[in-house]
Nucleic acid binder design. Structure first.
Length: 376
RNA sequence: GCUGGAAUCGUCUAGUGGCAAUGACAAGAGACUGUAAAUCUCUCGCCUUCGGGCUUCGUAGGUUCGAGUCCUACUUCCAGCA
């Protein structure tokens, strides 16, 4: 929205880390929080009821995918993403930049990006303005600025991508404000996206640029590995204004990323990893991920995780899950997705609790030592 | 009993004289981080110092430089006729 009133309230700070609440028209998000990846307006294999029951506070859909199908007009006609999907809670949309730049044959110029639909080859064009318009039509509570991803991890490409992202951010802000004035529906918020790859000077430059803009929060994009992520986030989040929320785009498959992200000042996360891992039989436990399809689980009648209160662990055992995967039953993916999503959501919830009762450091150390004891 | 046909890696299957031999499934394992992912990759006769070595296509012989492929007998199965 238009400024100076933050959508975020901070309850507690420990260094760069903070506990807070993001206020949206569809409800509050207690942070740090993991946001479910609902790319095509659904979290794969899960119903919204299951998402609510496993403790998810918010979902993130993807503008690129929804523009192609079913089209943003349809979602607007349905009353917006929350109403269309029956989520009824806080929602985010990613701008689609990440997807478009991963397509072959994208043509990029100052104005925007031309690309072909991966579904039927139809020609599309997306600009900062059209991405904002699409996101307003989709009607999520929080939108991401349309950003430019680097062609490679080289300094030159990162710098170019960052600079274009900044140019486009200015256009996103103008268009967003125009749409805010002409739109009679709920308030919708805009996050700028910080780029710069692994280069701290670029990250600092990008954070400074974004910090000055009239936006409601920040996405931190282009994060590749946990290696060096702490320094990068330290750089960026020391510069970004404290009072606005920060979303770490795409990170959360590895628990360490969530601990590091929260410790260095990120408030929300989203990641396709948990549900994708689940569909492929790779399931989280406190002792690391296991592949439930492995033969050694054939006769294992114990729950996947002893102290897990998800629907999967409360009712089913590993031998049964193994059987469901080996026979390729749909339920295998459903139960696995419930567990993995629950595991990551709850891990972040506990990070929040541990920050509140000053046990974060212990929680982080004991969790990571146990989770990663079998590798690295 | 006669006449045809068929027997190939756990299963089905390709192969009609020239390198253990096709494909699928099953099996075993691995990968996956702002989802073109219910996906993808690897292994799958035995051994290996990774160069290669050894043993394989119902059984036993034979022809041939060379046989899963041709010939003979046998075994089993299928179809038709008695």
């Amino acid at each position: 929205m238009l400024k100076e009133q933050s959508i975020f309230t901070i309850t507690k700070k420990i260094g760069l880390a903070r506990v807070g609440t993001i206020h949206t028209p569809h409800g509050d998000i207690k942070t740090p929080a993991f946001v479910g990846a609902a790319t095509r307006a659904t979290v794969k294999a899960l119903t919204m009821k299951e998402m609510r029951e496993l403790g998810s506070q918010a979902i993130l859909a993807n503008t690129y995918h929804l523009v192609l199908r079913p089209g943003t007009d349809l979602i607007k006609e349905a009353g917006g993403l929350a109403e269309f999907s029956s989520w009824h809670g806080p929602t985010f949309t990613d701008s689609g930049g990440f997807q478009i730049f991963s397509l072959p044959n994208v043509k990029i110029n100052e104005n925007g990006v031309k690309f072909k639909s991966h579904i039927d080859g139809a020609n599309f064009e997306m600009t900062p303005e059209s991405s904002m318009q699409a996101q307003w039509a989709i009607g999520a509570d929080i939108h991401m600025a349309f950003d430019h991803l680097a062609k490679s991890e080289s300094y030159e490409d990162m710098k170019e991508a960052m600079e274009r992202t900044h140019d486009w951010l200015d256009r996103c802000v103008i268009e967003h404000q125009r749409l805010a004035l002409t739109n009679t529906t709920n308030a919708q918020y805009l996050y700028a996206v910080v780029q710069g790859g692994t280069f701290l000077d670029l990250r600092a430059e990008s954070a400074k640029y974004c910090a000055e803009k009239s936006v409601d929060g920040f996405g931190i994009g282009g994060v590749f590995t946990a290696n060096g992520m702490d320094k990068m986030l330290q750089t960026v989040n020391s510069i970004l204004p404290e009072i606005k929320p920060r979303h770490l785009l795409g990170m959360g498959q590895e628990p360490i990323d969530l601990f590091v992200g929260a410790e260095y000042g990120c408030d929300t996360f989203d990641c396709v990893g948990p549900t994708r891992m689940a569909r492929n039989g790779s399931l989280y436990t406190l002792d690391g991920r296991i592949n439930i399809k492995n033969a050694k689980y054939t006769h294992d009648f114990t729950p996947l995780m002893m102290d897990c209160d998800c629907e999967c662990c409360k009712n089913y055992n590993k031998a049964y899950l193994h059987h469901l995967f080996k026979t390729d039953e749909i339920t295998a993916k459903v139960l696995a997705s419930i567990h993995n999503e629950h595991f990551i959501v709850k891990t972040v919830d506990r990070i929040r609790e541990s920050l509140l009762n000053d046990t974060f450091k212990d929680y982080k150390e004991s969790f990571l030592a146990r989770y990663y004891k079998n590798n690295k």
